[in-house]
């Protein structure tokens, strides 16, 4: 059920993000979602793409440091309180969200949020038990 996410190390200098997106574009890969966590000195770019292996190889070839991690793509009903309900489930299950960010595209009538948990298995169990829809890698690529 987890979706594979790529993370790229970025020094805080101008043009780096543009270079990364160009490398990905040149390899024919489509970016589905992204977020940047940054400090004064460096940033961590997280990406959901439609062809993980291709993007990873292209980035490495261009000298970027890349790591892959499993994340969950959770469907969030697109209405008031949709996200609050999901977060309540997570809280009640005693799970820690390492970070989260939103998808650009919608899945039907729902928004999609990416979650990174420390305890992946427990998170899957809790969310599924509460009736949340977790998107598969194929579903994410097909969006």
């Amino acid at each position: 059920m987890p979706v594979e996410q790529l993370a790229v190390f970025l020094e805080n200098k101008s043009g780096r993000l543009a270079e990364i997106t160009k490398v990905i574009a040149d390899s024919g890969v489509n970016i589905r979602a992204m977020s940047v966590a940054d400090t004064a000195d460096y940033g961590i770019l997280r990406l959901i793409v439609d062809q993980v292996a291709t993007a990873r190889a292209a980035l490495k070839e261009n000298g970027f440091t890349v790591s892959a991690a499993d994340v969950l793509a959770v469907e969030v009903p697109d209405r008031v309180g949709g996200l609050a309900r999901i977060l309540k489930i997570i809280e009640e299950a005693g799970l820690n969200v390492e970070y989260m960010y939103a998808f650009v595209n919608k899945s039907g009538d729902s928004a999609v949020m990416i979650f990174r948990f420390e305890q992946m298995e427990a998170a899957i169990a809790a969310l599924q038990k509460a009736g949340c829809h977790l998107l598969s890698g194929d579903e994410v690529c097909g969006m």
Partner: peptide, 15 residues
Amino acid sequence: EVNESIFSDSMKTQK
């Protein structure tokens, strides 16, 4: 220099 074995997607781990 960063490399794959010390790079993490988690800011907490990286810090």
